[in-house]
């Protein structure tokens, strides 16, 4: 029990952010017309590529002087993260292009 209390107190800012973000996510998405479900899912998917920051931090401070499994995995983490971010945003943009084209008419 005491451990849980300590854990909560030590991480209270983070827990606050998590709790508020949950409500924020619900709020942001709840009034979306179904027209936009696919692009929104795709856009949200691109944002989940924020893991790329973790990849950069990890590979940034990794020891690259000798070849290691961790080095290879780190490089893959950055490549996969970038695929998620850039691919995700580009594909969302392409989907949304179609909505825009029509607006000019």
């Amino acid at each position: 029990m005491e451990q849980i209390l300590i854990y909560f107190y030590e991480n209270k800012e983070v827990i606050f952010i998590i709790a508020l973000s949950i409500f924020l996510g619900i709020e942001v998405i709840s009034n979306v017309p179904s027209v936009l479900h696919t692009p929104l899912m795709s856009g949200a998917n691109a944002i989940s590529g924020v893991i790329i920051i973790g990849g950069i931090i990890l590979l940034g401070h990794a020891d690259l002087s000798t070849f290691s499994l961790n080095m290879v995995l780190g490089i893959f983490a950055v490549i996969f993260g970038t695929l998620n971010v850039i691919g995700g945003f580009v594909v969302t943009d392409r989907m949304l292009d179609m909505f825009k084209k029509k607006k000019k008419k």
């Binding site: 952010i17 949950i22 619900i26 998405i29």
Partner: peptide, 22 residues
């Protein structure tokens, strides 16, 4: 959470809860 990185936490949870609602 591991890196105490607020942008990752907020972005991740935002997608997590929005995805759950969707």
């Amino acid at each position: 959470f591991i890196y105490h990185n607020q942008a990752m936490i907020l972005g991740g949870i935002l997608v997590g809860s929005a995805g759950a609602i969707l």
